[in-house]
Each structure stands twice: as C-alpha cells, then as structure tokens.
Design a protein around this nucleic acid. Sequence first.
DNA 1: ACAGAAAACGCAACCGAGTAACAAAAGATT
DNA 2: AATCTTTTGTTACTCGGTTGCGTTTTCTGT
Lengths: 210, 210
Amino acid sequence: MNEETGLRERKKQRTRELLSKTAIELFLERGFDQVSVAEVAAAAEVSKPTLFRYFPAKEDLVLHGIADHQGEAARVVRGRAPGERPLAALRAHFHERLDAHDPITGLCDVPAVLAYRDLLYGTPGLLARLTLYALEDERELAAALGEAGADGMTARLGAAQIITVHQVLARGNWERLADGASAAAVLGDAHMDADRAYELLGDGLGVRGL
Amino acid sequence: MNEETGLRERKKQRTRELLSKTAIELFLERGFDQVSVAEVAAAAEVSKPTLFRYFPAKEDLVLHGIADHQGEAARVVRGRAPGERPLAALRAHFHERLDAHDPITGLCDVPAVLAYRDLLYGTPGLLARLTLYALEDERELAAALGEAGADGMTARLGAAQIITVHQVLARGNWERLADGASAAAVLGDAHMDADRAYELLGDGLGVRGL
DNA sequence: ACAGAAAACGCAACCGAGTAACAAAAGATT
DNA sequence: AATCTTTTGTTACTCGGTTGCGTTTTCTGT
C-alpha cells in the first residue's frame, strides 16, 4: 500500500535537494555569511518560510549531506563480524573509507569537495553545528560499545576518544590536501596516520612517552 | 606609570561583570532563549549597543567566566616538574581540582553552579559555543605536548583525547550530582573514574578489551 | 584648574535569521 | 467533478547584532 511513491513526496525531495544545492553553490562563491537566506530562497524559487520548512536553520542547508553519515561508527560496531573487536572493526572500516577517498576521511581531492571543506572549517557557525552532530554520533557509539560489553564509563570514554580521533585524522588529511597535494600522493601517509592513531587508541599514550 | 588602575578601566570591569551577572540571573530564572538581550541590557541599565561592545554575542554573556580557564591544560603541561610526564602532571592536576570541587571537573554541588551547568548543557547554542572554546584549548595543549617532545600527529591526537576525556569526566560527575547526590558523596567515585580514564589514556583501550 | 583629545555611551535606524497567521494553490480521495 | 488535506506564498513580526552620529564622560597636557 505504501510504494514510497507519490508525486508529493518526489517533489518535496527535489525541492529539498535543489535548496541545498543552490545554497552551497552560492556559499562557495561568496561565503556563508555573505549570502542571505532570502537570496537562497529566491535563487531556488521558493519563499523564505518554505525554505525554513525544509531546513530548520541556515547551517543545515550546508550540513544536510553530512547528516547522512550520522551514526556510522555505531553501525560499524554493531555490524562487525562475530568475535571481532570493536576497535578492529572501526580501524578496518576507516582504512576502507580511506581507500575509497571518502570525504569523511578528509582524503578527497575533488575540487568541489575541497572547497566545501574550506567552507566548513572556515565558518565558525558551521563548525559549531558540526560538533553538535558529532556529539550525537558519540552517544550512539557509546551505546554500541556498551552493547559490546564495555561498562558505562569505558564505553563513553572510548566513544569520545574514537570520534575525536576520526576528527583529528580527517583534519590532518584535509590540511595536506589544502597544501596542494593530491589524494593519491598522501594516501600512504594517511594510512600510516590512521594506523598510528588506532595503535594509540589501543595501546595508550603511554607507549609514546606521554 | 601604568599601575593597572584608572577609573575608566575599573568602571569597564564593573560594567562587564554586572552585565554577565545580570544576564546569568535572568537566564537561570527563565531560560536562555526566553530572555532577550534587550532585557538584559535594560536590567543592567546600559543600551543594547553597549552590551555588544562588551560581549560579541549573547552566548558570551554566559561563557565569560569559563574563558578564564582557557588554556589551563597547556599551562599544566608547560609548568610540570622537570622529568615529570605530561600525562602524569595532568592527572595529578585533575585530582587536585577534584578535591577542590572545582566546577570545571563537574564536581561542585553549590546550587548556583549546578543550575548554571543545567543551563549550559540544556542550551544547544551554549553547548556549541563551549565546544569552540574547547577546540582552542586543544590546539594550545597540542602545542605544549609538541614542546614536550611528541611528534606533530601524536601531539594532536593526544591533546584531542585528553580534552575529550576531561569533558566526559566532567559530564559524568555532573550527572551524578544532577541525580541529587552530594559532591562529598561521589568524590570517591569521581577519583576512581579519573584514575580509570587516565589509565585508559596511558595504556589504551586495548586493555579493556575493545 | 581648565581646555581639548580620546574614549565610551545612548539613540535611532537598520540588516538578517527565524516564526506566526492566514489565504491561495496543488495533490490526494471519493 | 467535488471535497479534503497538505503545501505554499504573502505579510508582518520578534530578536540578535551592527552602524552612524551626536553627546557625555574620562584622561591628558598645560
């Protein structure tokens, strides 16, 4: 009875994507703060209230694509092979995403993606919103680690550390690309960083003399 | 010639504190979003533009006190005893702050402080701003760890993990107090959590089976 | 003590984000 | 086709934050 179709739903979907796409284009051209939502609405040929019916805030026009990855870490832990350790699963997954040049790893040199990241990291408002998304990721991962057998405090500490490490790795990769290197050229270093980071997670900062 | 005095500076200082104090009182009474900056300005008997000359944004009226702790972790590392490891210095310092019931540890049951924390954690806008402050703390700490001999990536990873762990610990303590326990009653648990967290930092998640 | 420079302030007007109310239009249902 | 529901546009509003400008207050030099 519910074939996921319906002209209405399709139109909504298209409007939503049109809005986000239009907004990002404008933001990339002139900067997040230099473009008003009224302009975005006009360019997408909808009214301002309609825009806000689709996106609760201006920032979400940009972050809408990122919300798709929400809860990925928790999913990886929950979907790991029987007997596999959570950290091992996450580590393998990260290396996979690295090879795929997934933007969430920071290792994607498609010009549009690079410009997009410049926009994110260069706009405090977007960065702040982004960290709120990360907080939810963290909570979900903590729950998943709890299911995997960790006690409450360990699960929360571990989740926080893992999410944090991913952010640092992504930022590191992005900085290399921002310096002009190609993704292919730094792939090896990125893998090494990831290995190092996961070893640090697994073996502690103690082994590095801190 | 410059005795740090001057009527002007003193007045500015007082106005600044009056504004922050007035704002926090009002926010605690009715909630951050239910009080307009115009009201705050009126209650403090200054004009709206003047308020914004003292605080760049509404959120900073609340966070102004917290900014004082800015860079504390980095300072601890830089000021550690010769031969002492950074992690050991940070660990000792955290335990000290715990015993002092310092609000930054989350372990302070003074009613006003508790209400203040409710305000912080219960207002997304404040939380977001707070994490931006934490980002700077992280950068500073990374620099300090770098000076202490860690290579770039390790310093950044370590800094991120340490700051994150502090946040998790503080939040954990706050949750216990929010459940009605007294600071004295949970002090022991708080120390245990901190020990556990720092052991995790030092020895890695591996020892806990993750 | 007094005049002038510099800083801080208040006022009023303004811009942009986000919301509310209501009317108009479009899709779904029979 | 007629009706009901959902979505949309218009207008107008609140609130955070800024700007320009004239006025008051404090600091400085004599």
